[in-house]
Design a protein around this nucleic acid. Structure first.
Length: 214
DNA sequence: ACTGCGATTATCT
DNA sequence: GATAATCGCAGTG
């Protein structure tokens, strides 16, 4: 399945399929490429965990209602940014939060360490969380709404070249206790045993892909 | 205009 | 496990 096809899916279908795909960010220091290793789905007007719950369409949530393929970037706790991949069709709020990435190579990692002012001996904390990866990739609200699939952009999604060979686990999303019955939905996806995943799961479920994707 | 709080993180005990 | 940092957003009036 191509990236172009993935971003037209619902957030719940797209979230596991974005694992292993590549984010590219052009900075003044050069290009940084990394692999997506953890995601969360925030999809539809019914999801009480979503900013767009009840079709709440405001200046902040506007990007979630657009057609898939753009970024939704917001400020959280007054000091960190989070980046989402908007998916699905226009007027249906669907977004996949990128919760953790892994630098693809040495140079990528060096540039990320510099942006986040993290010494190499703490590299495991470089980008294992949604706020941390935005710092490491210099992502802020100036990138809200940018096209992720267009050539020439400074923030892009690229299809993984190598085959995706890993197991996927899922579990409840992080820090959405306010979401009532939606807080327990297993809509967080991550590469099993990956060192850059942001949090352990007490009782992870194996993610079984739908038959029509096999 | 005013208020409460968050899709987080680092640092402390 | 607990807490501070820090501010835009969404709801209320």
């Amino acid at each position: 399945m191509t990236i172009q096809e993935i971003v037209q899916l619902s957030a719940l279908e797209a979230a596991p399929r974005l694992l292993g795909q590549i984010m590219s960010r052009i900075t003044p220091a050069g290009e940084i490429r990394c692999r997506i290793v953890e995601t969360e789905s925030y999809g539809g007007a019914e999801d009480k965990g979503s900013h767009a719950y009840g079709n709440r369409r405001t200046a902040r949530t506007e990007m979630m209602f657009r057609q898939g393929g753009i970024a939704y970037v917001y400020l959280i706790y007054g000091m960190y940014h989070c980046v989402n991949v908007v998916t699905g069709t226009e007027n249906d709020p669907q977004a996949v939060l990128i919760r953790a990435v892994e630098p693809l190579g040495r140079v990528d990692e060096q540039r990320m360490l510099a942006l986040r002012h993290v010494p190499p001996n703490r590299r495991r904390t470089l980008c294992n969380g949604p706020g941390k990866l935005c710092l490491a990739l210099d992502i802020d609200k100036s990138l809200n709404g940018v096209q992720l699939l267009a050539s020439g952009g400074t923030l892009r999604l690229e299809e993984a070249k190598e085959p995706l060979d890993f197991a996927i686990e899922c579990g409840p999303r992080i820090n959405i206790d306010y979401a009532e019955e939606y807080a327990a939905k297993p809509w967080r996806f991550y590469i099993k045993d990956h060192p850059y995943v942001s949090a352990k799961n007490s009782s992870p479920l194996a993610y079984v892909p739908p038959l029509d994707t096999l």
